[in-house]
Structures are given as C-alpha cells and as structure tokens.
C-alpha cells in the first residue's frame, strides 16, 4: 500500500505522539535536565544558579568521603548480590526442575516473597531481626549465635541487608532460570549420562552452556537492580548507624531532599551513578554476548 509522505507522518504522529509526549516530559527531559543541572551550583533555595563546569564532579569524587564510602559500600553490595542471587536462583531452579510432583508447590513458595514490596519486606525482617531472633537465641544455647545486633552493627547489617535482598529477589531470577532449564533437551542430558558423565559434569558441560542466554539476562537484571538498591536499605537501617550502610542512591536522596537541597551537586552524583551502571552493563553484556555466540 502506498501512502504519501505527508499522510504517513500524520498517522505516525497520531499513534506515537501521545506516548512520546509523556515519555518526553517525564523521562527524556528529566534525564537531560539532570545532566544540565550537574554542571551548575543550583540549590533548591535560590532561584539563580551559575555554571561551574566539572566542579561538582571533582567535589564528589575528591572531597566527599561520605559519597565515596557509599559508592564503595554499593560496590560491595553489588558484587555479593550479583554472585549470590544468581547462584541461589540457579541452585533452586535446578533442584525444583528435578522434581515431578512438587515442582509447582516449591515454585510458588520461593517466588512469593517477590510479590511483597521491598519496603514491606524490609519491615517484616526488621521484626524478625529485632524481636524474633533475639528471643530464639534466649531459648536454647544452641541458637545463642542469633543474638546479634543485626541492624545496629554495620558489619553485621551488611549481611542482614544481603539476606533480605536475596529473600525478596531470588524468586524472580529462579523463574527465569526455570524457563531456561525447560529449554534444555532431555535427550542431551540422557546421552551424557549414558556416556558416563556424573550429574556435576552433565550440569557444567551440558546444562550451563545451554542456558547461557538466561544467565545473560539474569546477570543484567541483578547488576542493574543491585546498583539501584534503595528501599531495602531505607527500610532496614535507614543508612545507619551514622552513614555506615548508606548506599549511593540514598546518598543522592539525602543530598537532594533531606540535607541541604544541593540539587546541582546531587545531580552530578546521579550522573556518576548513571555512568557507572552504563559501563558495567556494557561490559557485562558484551562479554556474555561473546560467550553466547561461542556456545
């Protein structure tokens, strides 16, 4: 069907226009706006602002120990989360996949926490950490190791944060891995076993290469999600005690909304976060794509 150029663009405009306008106002402009503000000294209180070039970036990376600390804390969180979340999810998926009758039941149980919003999960666990575990510890000396300052001691609360994030997030990845595992032909595994492979060999040499695509997706999702962690930490420790468990998103939030309203400076920090996520995502995707082609 031939359409004249004018008519073609009019219909494109009519169909795409409404979505594009909302996208433009609420996503594209703010993205560009954030980059623009990052090179100004705008704070929420003054109307006027000046361009200060890369001053904000220099300050954030050189003279802001709190920001650097939150950056390092986030990095630590990201590394531990990406590894554990995928290992646990894959482990659960493999175990569940091997079940015949109880498959649906276990899938339902392990996925359920993912339905509960992260902030509510954090509150549920706050109860467990501050009330349930200390009482458990008092009951028998066997469980006395449970009597910890789960949310008060920064060294321990890091693991508490990890635990809650895993509880909430593993189910999602498990579903994706389960779908991936279902795509592995049974005949291949059987052939490997006939050839004398043990379950581990068959897993590492048959199953794992066959689900590379699922691994790529899950690594991408966990990496992206972990950098953006906010709700869980906000609900569990609020970044405290002090700023010892503050993650980068929280540092930005504090700078912009609850501290001194330095919007320009906070924007520079958020640009740094954006760039870090872009770099890591790019590396991860390009490395995994190469692998996918090979296998």
């Amino acid at each position: 069907m031939l359409q004249s150029g004018y008519k073609k663009y009019m219909s494109l405009l009519a169909f795409v226009g409404p979505a594009f306008i909302l996208y433009f106002i609420f996503l594209m402009l703010p993205t560009l706006g954030g980059m623009y503000y990052s090179i100004t000294d705008w704070n929420g209180l003054n109307r006027d602002y000046e361009f200060i070039g890369f001053g904000n970036f220099v300050e954030a990376l050189r003279e802001d120990p709190d920001f650097i600390k939150s950056l390092l804390f986030t990095m630590k969180y990201v590394i531990v989360m990406v590894v554990l979340q995928n290992v646990f999810a894959l482990f659960l998926a493999v175990l569940i996949e091997s079940k015949m009758r109880s498959k649906g039941f276990f899938r339902t149980i392990f996925f359920m926490p993912n339905m509960i919003s992260m902030i509510i999960s954090a509150f549920i666990w706050t109860f467990v950490f501050t009330q349930v575990l200390p009482q458990l510890a008092q009951m028998t000396s066997l469980l006395s190791f449970l009597d910890q300052s789960w949310l008060g001691d920064p060294n321990i609360s890091f693991f508490s944060i990890i635990l809650v994030s895993l509880w909430n997030g593993v189910g999602y990845m498990m579903i994706i891995y389960l779908a991936g595992l279902q795509g592995v032909p049974q005949s291949l595994k059987e052939a490997a076993i006939i050839d004398g492979a043990n379950p581990f060999q068959s897993f590492f040499h048959i199953t794992l290469p066959m689900i590379t695509h699922a691994i790529t997706i899950c690594l991408f999702l966990t990496l992206n999600g972990a950098f953006k962690v906010f709700d869980t930490v906000y609900g569990l420790t609020g970044g405290g005690p002090g700023r010892s468990t503050q993650v980068i998103t929280m540092n930005i939030y504090e700078e912009a909304f609850s501290n001194n309203f330095r919007y320009g400076y906070a924007s520079a920090k958020s640009v740094i976060l954006f760039v870090i996520i872009l770099i890591f995502t790019f590396i991860q995707v390009s490395v995994m794509k190469k692998r996918e082609v090979e296998s």
Binding site: L12, V16, F20, Y23, I25, F26, L27, M28, L29, P30, T31, G33, G34, Y37, N224, F227, K228, F230, T249, I252, Y253, A256, Y263, A266, S267, S270, V271, L273, F274, I277, L278, T281
Partner: peptide
Amino acid sequence: SNIIFFLFIASMLVPFHSIMIPLTRM
C-alpha cells in the same frame, strides 16, 4: 520511526535516581 524507537529503548537504561530531582521539579 527508527530514531524514535531507539530513543525509547535507550531510555530503559536510565536509573530512576538519575531523574528524580528534575522529575520532582517538573
């Protein structure tokens, strides 16, 4: 239409925390 589609896709990588300040103002 390719350019518009690309703009939509590329924006999926923008973290919410990078836009929350201008978005609130908007």
